[in-house]
Computed example of a mutant assay.
Amino acid sequence: MSRTPRPVPLPRIAPSPSAEPPYDDERPAGDVPAAPPYVQGALALAYDPEPVEPPVRRPLIWGPPGAVPDERRLRALGQAVAEILSGRRPPSSVSSLLTERAHAELVRSGKIINCTRPPLVGTPHVSQPKDGVVEMCVLVHCGDRPRVLALRLERKGVQWLCTDFEATP
């Protein structure tokens, strides 16, 4: 036995809004746009330019108080420091994540990792010797001979700052 197919509903016709904009007399009173200022044969210039503020450097906050930074962020910091030590990134790119002493040491050390290709940082090995301190080491793959990079981070308020680093020559 074959069933009789149910009738398919026909498309309905729905009214569409007008494609033309309304005339001035059709607009409500509150919808009237303000007229532009009259300028005769001159450029319209703003005499009071908006003050240009320097970009605000917001500190990197890694989690709630007492929490250890996650592995992804630690690895990204290790990658950035490895790129700086190989001469592929300027030290100023991580200045907000380092103390002044650690940043000065990073600038002073210069290029100590020689590699023909960009360094690649492995998984960080993290230890927490005391509350508010994180020490990590990462293996830096950079050609034939891998290097080791160690970083010490301390919590300063809500921000983790790298206070010291060491790299194998």
Rank of each mutant, 00 (worst) to 15 (best):
G41T: 05
A67D: 07
A29S: 15
V68Q: 01
P33W: 02
P21A: 10
Y23D: 13
A35G: 09
G41R: 08
P65G: 04
D48A: 14
R57Q: 10
P55W: 06
P49F: 03
V32N: 09
P64A: 07
D31S: 13
L60V: 12
E26H: 09
A34R: 11
L45R: 06
E71P: 01
P65E: 02
D70R: 12
R58P: 00
E71K: 14
P21W: 05
R27E: 13
P36D: 07
V68S: 01
D25Y: 12
A44P: 02
P21I: 06
A44L: 10
P69W: 00
W62M: 08
Y23G: 15
D70S: 04
E53A: 12
A29D: 09
Y23H: 13
P54W: 02
A29I: 13
R58K: 15
L43I: 05
A34N: 12
V68R: 00
A44Q: 10
Y38C: 08
P65C: 04
D70L: 02
R57H: 10
P69N: 02
G66T: 01
G66L: 00
A42C: 15
D70F: 03
P28I: 10
G41P: 00
D24M: 08
I61L: 08
V56T: 13
P51S: 04
P28A: 11
A35H: 08
D25L: 12
I61A: 05
D70W: 03
Q40H: 09
E26V: 06
A67W: 04
A34Q: 11
P64C: 03
D48G: 05
P69E: 00
D70Y: 04
V68N: 01
G66P: 01
V39S: 14
P54I: 01
P51A: 06
P69C: 03
P59R: 11
E26C: 14
A44R: 13
P51M: 02
P64H: 02
R57W: 03
P54K: 03
Y38V: 10
A46W: 08
E20W: 10
W62Y: 10
I61W: 01
Y23M: 13
G63M: 01
G63E: 00
P69A: 01
E71D: 15
E26T: 07
P59M: 07
V56D: 04
D48I: 07
A34V: 10
D48V: 12
P51W: 00
A35L: 15
Q40A: 15
P49W: 02
P55M: 05
P36Y: 05
A46E: 11
P65I: 02
V68W: 00
R27N: 08
V56F: 11
L45V: 14
